[in-house]
Write a protein that binds this DNA or RNA. Sequence first.
RNA 1: GGUCCGUUCGUCUAGGGGUUAGGACGUAUCCCUUUCACGGAUGAAACACGGGUUCGAUUCCCGUACGGACUACCA
Length: 513
Amino acid sequence: MTKEVRVRFAPSPTGALHIGGVRTALYNYLFAKKQGGQFLLRIEDTDQTRFVPGAEEYIKEALEWIGIVPDESPWKEGPHGPYRQSERKPLYMDYAMDLVEKGFAYYAFDTSEELDAMRERLTAARVVSPQYNSITRTQMKNSLTLPEDEVKERLASGEPHVIRLKVPRKEEIRLNDMIRGWVMVHSNTLDDKVLMKSDGMPTYHLANIVDDHLMGITHVIRGEEWLPSAPIHVLLYRYLGWEDTMPEFAHLPLLLKPDGNGKLSKRDADKNGFPIFPMNWKDPRTEDFSQGFKDAGYLPDAFINFLAFLGWNPGDNREIFSLPELIQAFSVERIGKSGTKFDINKAKWFNEQYLKAKSNEELAAYLNADLKSEGITIEEGKAEQIVAIMKERATFPSDLWKEGRFLLIAPDQFDEKVSSKKWTADAVKVLTTYKAKLESLDAILEPVNAKALLEEAAAENEIKLGKVMPAVRLAVTGAGAGPDLISIFMIIGKDELIKRIDFALNTLEVIES
RNA sequence: GGUCCGUUCGUCUAGGGGUUAGGACGUAUCCCUUUCACGGAUGAAACACGGGUUCGAUUCCCGUACGGACUACCA
């Protein structure tokens, strides 16, 4: 029996959760649940300068919206808390000191100006990649070059300093990525990463290793952008003495721009008019507002189904998967290697599928909510009727009202393109007759008699019904296309039907034929 | 520039030494529908290129091209 799977999603609260981040969270969750393991949320807020108010809550709510609730998080403490790195601050220095004592890390006192100067010097000397490494560190101000006394003195006087990892000069570092297989990097291409910043906070590199170890993380599933620094992480596990419990890594392919190339950005989303954040977000600094998938009308199930298929597939032709079905079908082996271009059309298609699958009762709730905000009240059961004929042509719940508005509000104008071609003298004759027949109808209007009366009206005028149907639709709905007419008659009822025909007859000008 | 990762229809992808290279979105045509949509049918549409290995490569290997990520006291 192998140990229980524990994975984490570790976002920074620097703004709204990007759709790529949501996918990473989803894959972590699916993997954990498939294995019967735990999914935790850890807030990586070690960069105090980038903290954005509200971002944490946003992350929490976004995950709740898509239905993935962490087993452990800042809001649901487990045995390995706290789950916010800023609250774990006292922990990290011990590990950094351990590395310094073992000779795997060192103090560095260089100012940012000195670092810039070093990079400029190297660039001028045509060094291919200027970095703080086994060669350049010999010329910088650190505990490797400074006399021991001076180092102690500087430390004692509280001089700002960082702790850097002492990357070995010549070593091959390998890691076995679950998605990409063996990846090998030479240590001479790595630089001496800062582990502890001068403000006393750890960098991502140190914090994520310490926390993952302490939290018993077994698998690290994260974006491909971390692959280049993964060898640093392997080194840290080794130097900290944790190599035998090092988690397995899986680096996910990136989400790319829909057109052209490059990483998907908010800019692309804005340009193409689709959301990139799960929910509405207003940047507290720029006041910039972005509509989220939720608020654009995407159903959470459709959203995660769509997201899951951006880089993963079940290996067969099925496409519609509920969250439990995704868990059941998920496997890391079936995650693709290459970047995925973002296609909003597919997202819309998924939404339509889920929308159509919903019961009339559920959909009526959406319609009723829209009606309520418009201040419109309708009789019991009417919303269900409307939704039944409208849902086949809706992408979002809001379309139910947007497209079905004419069912509750009589048209005050008519589609010019249709009236100019179809509002013929014949149409007027048939509608006039039909109106009279409706007025003298004693029985309740039903599909059969509504249809029969219309046919009679046409026959009595010796006109083919098909020729005037577009005009009938125009009179009743104001448009040239829409749901089945008889169904519409049933929803608006006899009195309203008569009123609308009457209004059209009095409003529209007959065209010459 | 350097390091690493990648490359099958427009897009998401299946497949994998011998296939008519499969599905989905989108698209085109047709059917259904006195309209539109839904649904159904059909079509167009892909293995980046060059070398190897092999009887045979889209599939394996090596290059090239192209794309991407990374290259901070950011994550």
